[in-house]
Computed example of a mutant assay.
Amino acid sequence: MLTLAMIVKNESEKLGRCLESVRSIVDEIVVVDTGSVDDTKKIASAYGARVFDFQWVNDFSAARNFALEQCEGDWILVLDADDRIIKASRKEIDDFITNNNSLGRIRITNSFDYDGELRESEANVTRLFPKGLFYTGKIHEQIVSDLPRKNVPIYVYHDGYYKSDKYKRNIKMLELELDEYPDDNYLLYQLGKEYRIIKDFINAEAYLSRCYSGITDIDGYKPQLIIECLYTMLGVGNFEEGLVLIEREARLLSDFPDFYFVSGLFYMELVFSDINKYMRYFPLIEKSYLKCLSIGDTDKYESVKGTGTFLATYNLAVFYETTGDLNKARKYYELSAQYNYKLARKRFEILSG
């Protein structure tokens, strides 16, 4: 028996969309409401959910663990109201449960705003597991288990952070938890990441630097930490330390397109910050984006869609245009436009005018 477990609050606009996408896959739906004043509970009941109330205590794990306790299924799938399943097969889920003594990581596409442009990132997140486990962490909660984690073919789209103010809420909760666990590297990473998203690069650098000083290569989020550090160093203009970081971590991230993508941005900003001093790094801009394209988009890491394809191709075209090589610029704008990237199509039309 497979149970869907959810915690919700005032999600009447999105909950029905989520439940409709999953209703044919699960045997039971458990919805824990943390204080809705809209039609959230009514919508959940209409989809046959067992609905429970839980008083919000500023702790996502507490609410999720209460939801897990109400589940009757042997296995549990966790989703949020602003998730919706894009692709999944009950047969493939059952095969995974039967043949793997492991937890299931589903593939989540997250939409976010990047300087007014809709972009998407993809990550494998543990959301399918046997009954009896529990969460820890007041926010960005993690399931506790020593079992291995393997990818299961469940694909989900999440749009809860697109043009939202949840980042400020997250920062407050993370800071409270960090007061309790001041040396927790994962909390430092998440807090630095939240500050970087809202472009508070000073605070972001402080937390990310503390995290980096204590992280090891076996920590699964180290690749993402390095990416966050580089974008933050770009934000504050910390070029010298950024150069050291790129050189130090290049071997670890040799198959990560996002690393070469941010490296290309870094080298470009570096060179134009002082052309005479940094001109020797100019060829590395082109080299970085070509490396992105040689790797392509990947599902190994949490990655922004397009860093190995159309975004790298677009930035490479911009590079060629700024150097006056318009033939190559048109070529790469056209290649990027083939992915329906509007900025590339617009620029290609201008240059082909």
Results as ranks from 00 to 15, higher is better:
residue 129 F to V: 15
residue 130 P to C: 00
residue 130 P to M: 03
residue 131 K to M: 06
residue 131 K to C: 01
residue 132 G to H: 07
residue 132 G to L: 09
residue 133 L to W: 15
residue 133 L to H: 07
residue 136 T to C: 15
residue 138 K to D: 14
residue 138 K to C: 12
residue 139 I to C: 14
residue 142 Q to R: 14
residue 143 I to L: 08
residue 144 V to N: 08
residue 147 L to N: 00
residue 148 P to R: 00
residue 148 P to E: 02
residue 148 P to M: 03
residue 149 R to V: 12
residue 149 R to E: 13
residue 149 R to A: 15
residue 152 V to N: 06
residue 153 P to L: 02
residue 154 I to R: 07
residue 155 Y to W: 14
residue 156 V to L: 12
residue 156 V to Q: 09
residue 156 V to E: 10
residue 157 Y to E: 11
residue 157 Y to W: 12
residue 158 H to C: 11
residue 161 Y to T: 10
residue 162 Y to P: 01
residue 163 K to I: 09
residue 164 S to P: 06
residue 165 D to L: 04
residue 166 K to Q: 13
residue 166 K to W: 15
residue 167 Y to S: 15
residue 168 K to M: 09
residue 168 K to W: 13
residue 170 N to A: 13
residue 172 K to E: 12
residue 173 M to P: 10
residue 173 M to G: 11
residue 174 L to A: 04
residue 174 L to F: 03
residue 175 E to C: 08
residue 178 L to G: 05
residue 178 L to H: 04
residue 180 E to S: 02
residue 180 E to K: 09
residue 180 E to T: 04
residue 181 Y to N: 11
residue 182 P to R: 05
residue 183 D to I: 09
residue 183 D to H: 07
residue 185 N to Y: 10
residue 188 L to I: 00
residue 189 Y to D: 15
residue 190 Q to C: 13
residue 190 Q to N: 14
residue 191 L to Y: 04
residue 191 L to A: 00
residue 192 G to E: 11
residue 192 G to P: 01
residue 193 K to R: 13
residue 196 R to E: 15
residue 197 I to P: 12
residue 197 I to H: 10
residue 197 I to R: 09
residue 198 I to G: 14
residue 199 K to Y: 05
residue 200 D to K: 07
residue 201 F to E: 13
residue 203 N to H: 04
residue 203 N to G: 06
residue 204 A to I: 03
residue 204 A to M: 04
residue 205 E to N: 03
residue 206 A to N: 15
residue 207 Y to M: 13
residue 212 Y to Q: 15
residue 212 Y to N: 14
residue 214 G to P: 05
residue 215 I to K: 00
residue 216 T to P: 08
residue 218 I to R: 07
residue 220 G to T: 14
residue 221 Y to F: 13
residue 221 Y to K: 14
residue 223 P to L: 06
residue 224 Q to V: 06
residue 225 L to Q: 05
residue 225 L to A: 05
residue 226 I to G: 04
residue 227 I to T: 10
residue 227 I to Q: 15
residue 228 E to Y: 02
residue 228 E to H: 05
residue 228 E to S: 03
residue 231 Y to R: 04
residue 232 T to C: 10
residue 233 M to S: 07
residue 235 G to W: 02
residue 236 V to G: 03
residue 236 V to K: 06
residue 237 G to R: 03
residue 237 G to Y: 03
residue 237 G to E: 04
residue 238 N to M: 03
residue 239 F to S: 01
residue 241 E to P: 02
residue 241 E to D: 00
residue 241 E to F: 02
residue 244 V to F: 12
residue 246 I to N: 12
residue 246 I to D: 05
residue 246 I to P: 15
residue 247 E to L: 04
residue 248 R to P: 12
residue 249 E to T: 09
residue 251 R to Y: 11
residue 252 L to Y: 11
residue 252 L to M: 11
residue 252 L to I: 10
residue 252 L to V: 06
residue 252 L to F: 10
residue 253 L to G: 04
residue 253 L to S: 01
residue 254 S to P: 12
residue 254 S to H: 12
residue 255 D to R: 15
residue 256 F to V: 06
residue 256 F to T: 08
residue 256 F to G: 01
residue 259 F to Q: 09
residue 259 F to W: 05
residue 261 F to D: 14
residue 261 F to P: 02
residue 261 F to E: 07
residue 262 V to W: 11
residue 262 V to F: 11
